[in-house]
Design a protein around this nucleic acid. Structure first.
Length: 582
DNA sequence: CCCATAATGATCGGAAGT
DNA sequence: ACTTCCGATCATTATGGG
């Protein structure tokens, strides 16, 4: 990284990440302030807590002194008033409890041990529901085979295994029977090949998944029996924290500095999984249960930059001594776009942008807004204001002229998300929006990954699944963590080119291996890489959210959706990596 | 100009949260 | 009651190589 002098970027914007100087200067400052990470940053950022009013009473100090965060205290005071200290304390304790209490690890039924009895009853339940549930799609008998094939493939089996199983067991057999058949076949093969250890995780995977499916179905059945009465699904619902700050953010590191991970989840290797926070019900609990029962960390990137981005992260990284990337990115719309201030009407009270999506408003819609405004000299009537504001919020429009709003340019999105300027330049405009809309917010992810820096002073080997335009790689690079070997799996050739180009631009000294399809990354392939450079230190991945996000009007099918079910490949591959000894 | 492909524009609710 | 959202489909227009 020494010889990198690609400083040809016009540095009108100073968070361009190409600059190695940044990393070096940061390294210096961090080493001098290692004890209290983040403090320095706060001091430098001036008005970090801009969203809070100037509540500077003794009450605040009192509670902050007790160890609660300023934000929590402010919120509690807002709710109860300053006098009502008892209620404030109660609220604060509730907040803390909500954040720190892991769910009870009940549900023994999903765990390893099983008797043949329970197995049999499971089987009954399963086949029962499978054939009589209210799913309409089973009405078509000709698709029965394909449907079974598909669900087996979605469970992580190969199409070949699945079709053999169907052929042997007959079309009438239940999915459970089929998986049992495949498991047995795998077991036999594993013994043949003297590879019990390597093949075992695949069995575990399939087995665990099956159990989970059964669990879901049982629940569904129970739910149907209960009718529309209130259902006890406390064990099922994952509560989103409010404020959505996870285990802490740079401006307010949480008092919580440690968590107890389930033993099965401990690293190395470390893993870091990401997806949208607002999913259909049950999705996050399923993800969490697959990823070794680690509780997700839900974070809104509006605490890191000028745009919202509500995401859940499941990882087994330590959470103490995190530090943010320097320089801190702009935290408000006005900081991010100083020039728009003169056009920004006082009645548009936004300070943060909404989530950056994959497409932008049409020219016509901004034209409609201009037309709606041009008749008025001063403030338009409330009705017009509401129309305009609704549109602006919906499409993340900013003011760029008199009565003139416009969507963000691709390079502005790059900046907000923490990518190097022009990172995606060269591909089509549409593709840029799409790729960026699907990416990590660098500052957020880097904050979480920062703990790796002192653990791996010589760099890391990274397995990056669903890499997109390389958010994880860039975050690590900006942290000054050397990338020794990176295996990056990404289906889109356009995105792979972006990453490859970035890799060359930044004069990486490590090796980048890029693959195109997670589904073809099997144990052999992984073992090859792992013996080549001695295992992976970190497995990162944000699997497709197509079928999870609220923006999808047509196919919000949950984790079993066409694209989103690729999550199971993240789990499959992670479990393989964890089981292969090097 | 013809034809292919690529890029852009218009339009489409709803679940789950506060 | 009100807000938000890593989107998909189809029609239309732009682009480019012959």
């Amino acid at each position: 990284m020494d010889g990198n002098t690609s400083g040809e970027d016009g540095n009108d914007i100073d968070w361009s990440t190409e600059d190695e100087l940044e990393i070096e200067s940061f390294t210096l400052s961090s080493s001098s302030s290692l004890t209290v990470p983040g403090r320095e940053a706060i001091a430098g950022s001036g008005e970090a807590s801009s969203s809070q009013g100037p509540s500077n009473s003794k009450v605040v100090d009192h509670f902050v002194g007790m160890g609660f965060s300023g934000k929590m205290v402010a919120k509690a005071i807002q709710e109860h008033g300053e006098e009502n200290t008892d209620s404030i304390l109660e609220t604060l304790l509730t907040y803390s409890a909500l954040e720190s209490s892991p769910q009870e690890p009940q549900q023994v039924d999903c765990d390893d041990q099983f008797s043949s009895d329970s197995e049999a009853s499971f089987l009954d339940d399963f086949s029962d529901i499978d054939s009589y549930s209210d799913n309409e799609d089973i009405l078509n008998p000709t698709s029965e085979k394909n449907k079974k094939l598909l669900s087996l493939v979605n469970m992580g089996y190969t199409a070949e295994e699945a079709s053999i199983a169907i052929e042997r067991c007959g079309l009438d057999s239940t999915v459970v029977e089929l998986t049992d058949f495949i498991c047995a076949a795998q077991m036999a093969r594993a013994e043949d090949a003297h590879l019990p250890l390597e093949e075992k995780p695949r069995l575990n995977h399939a087995y665990k998944k099956r159990k989970l499916l059964q669990y879901e179905l049982l629940k569904k059945k129970k739910l149907m029996r209960l009718g529309n009465k209130t259902i006890d699904e406390d064990d099922e619902t994952v509560h989103l924290p409010n404020p959505m700050v996870g285990f802490g953010i740079p401006s307010e590191p949480c008092l919580k500095t440690h968590r107890n991970l389930p033993e099965a989840a401990l690293g190395p290797p470390y893993f870091y999984y990401e997806n949208v926070a607002l999913t259909p019900k049950g999705v996050w609990s399923t993800i969490s249960r697959f990823l070794y029962d680690v509780q997700p960390e839900f974070v809104d990137s509006k605490y890191f930059c000028a745009a919202a981005r509500k995401r859940g992260y499941v990882h087994n990284l330590p959470i103490e001594n995190r530090f943010p990337l320097i320089p801190l990115p702009p935290h408000t719309i006005h900081e991010a776009f100083p020039l728009i201030r003169k056009w920004w009407p006082s009645w548009d009270t936004r300070t943060k942008l909404n989530c950056l999506l994959t497409s932008i408003a049409s020219a016509k819609s901004t034209e409609r807004i201009r037309k709606a405004l041009e008749d008025y000299d001063g403030e338009p009537p409330l009705r017009v204001q509401k129309y305009v504001l609704d549109e602006c919020r919906k499409w993340n429009l900013v003011w760029v002229g008199r009565n003139k709003v416009a969507p963000l340019e691709p390079d502005e999105v790059e900046m907000l998300l923490g990518y190097p300027k022009n990172h995606t330049r060269g591909i089509s405009r549409t593709d840029r929006y799409k790729s960026l809309g699907n990416s990590f917010q660098i500052d957020t992810v880097a904050y979480h990954l920062s703990v790796l820096k002192e653990m791996f002073p010589n760099g890391i080997n990274l397995l990056s699944l669903f890499s997109g335009i390389g958010g994880a790689e860039i975050a690590l690079h900006r942290l000054g963590i050397r990338l020794k070997n990176v295996v990056s799996v990404e289906i889109s050739a356009v995105n792979r080119n972006v990453v490859r180009s970035w890799w060359e631009q930044t004069n990486q000294r490590g090796n980048l291996y890029d693959l195109d399809d997670v589904q073809q990354l099997n144990g052999d392939r992984l073992e090859h890489y792992m013996t080549l450079f001695g295992g992976f230190d970190l497995v990162v991945g944000g699997s497709p959210c197509n079928n999870l996000t609220g923006s999808n009007r047509l196919h919000r099918d949950g984790l079993e959706g066409k694209e989103s079910s690729l999550f199971y490949h993240y789990y499959r591959i992670l479990d393989l990596v964890r089981s292969i000894k090097t």
